[in-house]
Amino acid sequence: MDLMQILSIIIPTAIFAAAPLILTALGGVFSERSGVVNIGLEGLMMMGAFVGAVFTYFGETWGFGAASPWFSFVIAIILGALFSLLHAVASITFRADQVVSGVALNFLAAGLTIFLVKKIFEAGQTPYITHRIFRGDVPFLSEIPIIGPLLFTKAYITSYLAIALAFVVWFVIYKTSFGLRLRSVGEHPMAADTMGISVTKMRYVAVMLSGAFAGLGGAVYATSISGNFTHATIAGQGFMALAAMIFGKWHPIGALGAALFFGLAQSLSITGQQIPLLKEIPDVFLLISPYVLTILALAGFVGRADAPKAIGKPYEKGKR
């Protein structure tokens, strides 16, 4: 088996596995850049996956056909943003500990989604959807030698959407006045407040954006990877997205890179059995590698990662 063959197994799987992580990590960037820790990404993603599976299924029964997953994406974005409002209200308005509120959000999503699945379908999981996100060759680009077969053949369109959104988010955060305001309330909320920026409003918007992105991430996971929703569909992907965001140093492009890298690690643990050299390595090392690497990155072995300055602190007007 030559290198090209090996790469053509690993790389498409990596990009495929990374898409939900990229989207959710981008959501995390918005929230944390505004100074609100979002441990609740896991729960938001769970909500998104639930909505993705359920509304794709409904869309199919209502005759939407292949458009059903896209219909479910819209709903997942809206419901994700609304669901994240709970985190926003608790941690911004009522000054709850942001980590605690995020944990509560995860609990709530885990309970609520399965409760609703059991109520709607009278079973522990949703039915499998028929119209998954399709894979296709990108016209022209797939003809390019070497890169074409690796990156643009039999690819999921959602993966490109996720990668493109990373650049959009980068533009929004670093090149627009909205992004400047967002970063300023995360770094020095009092200064931002003095300049007439509403800290509360900016943080609400940021948390809701994180909910929208994580909801989309979850829906993409359900419609491209799992195909249905059970209690085990989202089991740690949200935390892995959180890790990707930190590993990417709270930067959209960094988060994109980290998510792709974690996707690679995941794809190695899935496809490793087909590759001669990797067969010898026990599964467990590949499974734990994203987590261990994140810890090493934070410890400064892979470059220093500094959080936004005001992260985790509720803003109280007039308090020094």
Binding site: A96, V100, A104, F107, L108, A110, G111, L112, F115
Partner: peptide, 15 residues
């Protein structure tokens, strides 16, 4: 699980 999550929210929002 939902009830427990709500209890956490309310305790955390003791403000």
């Amino acid at each position: 699980t939902i009830v427990i999550a709500l209890i956490i929210f309310f305790v955390a929002s003791s403000y």
